[in-house]
Amino acid sequence: MPQTIVQVQNLNLSYKSVKAVQNVSFSVTPGEILAVIGQNGSGKTSTVECIEGLRKPDSGSIEVFGKDPWLHRQEVYKEMGVQLQEAEYPPKIKVEEQCRLFASFYDRPANWELLLKQLGLEEKRKRPVHKLSGGEKQRLSILLSLMGRPKLLVLDELTTGLDPEVRQNMWAGFGNIKENGVAIIMVSHYLDEVETLADKILYLEKGKQKFLGTKQGFREYVKSQVPQEEWEENLPLERLYLMIAPKTTGLTMEGIM
């Protein structure tokens, strides 16, 4: 039985009167990738920010490496790397300075010079971070999440802003990282990414946990939720997700013309 790295039980979080996360429970073991999916505002980022120790839950328990991340944040971060949905860096800091600074935070930092090359940022090392493109910033953010040679990675929208080739490279890279026993929690809107990488899926809807299980389990869950005549076998994950996700109003010309 593999040791559990993250254990979340009955997590609840509210913003004033809005219940952002309601009774969410799951666990993650070494070498496992859990994908958190759901619409905008479904509580994905709030959930992972509780795991990251950046938000204090109203109730429920979270253990990361056996410790409460809210109370023992700095200890937990020795073995956890995160890529935030939006990350800003000190004004006028250069790429290599940012890397060197983050490397100083860890006893045994990753070889960031090699990572710069692998992520295609070698030529940008002298460039101020604020002058990087969105995709380059995202790659830097990924690099920094790996700086501490983490055993747990929390990636909030891993490949947003990246071009298709880089996305494919990222998938291969994170596949390797997982093979080396690193547990990964990833928040994603890209269901092709989830299909490729994830072992387990946590599906949230308006803060509530609607599904937790394998990709096959998710297929069966969707099948149980939709009318039989609408069901088709072997649909990609994205089509399955669209079958059950709450419908949003479409954009029409009515408001524009």
Binding site: E52, G53, L54, R73, Q74, E75, Y77, K78, V82, L84, E86, A87, E88, Y89, P90, P91, F102, F105, Y106, G148
Partner: peptide
């Protein structure tokens, strides 16, 4: 205030340094 508003401190909080 600049670091707080731009959430730069938040990024540092997500490291062992805080």
């Amino acid at each position: 205030s600049d670091y707080k508003e731009k959430k730069i401190y938040k990024r540092f909080d997500a490291t062992p340094v805080g």
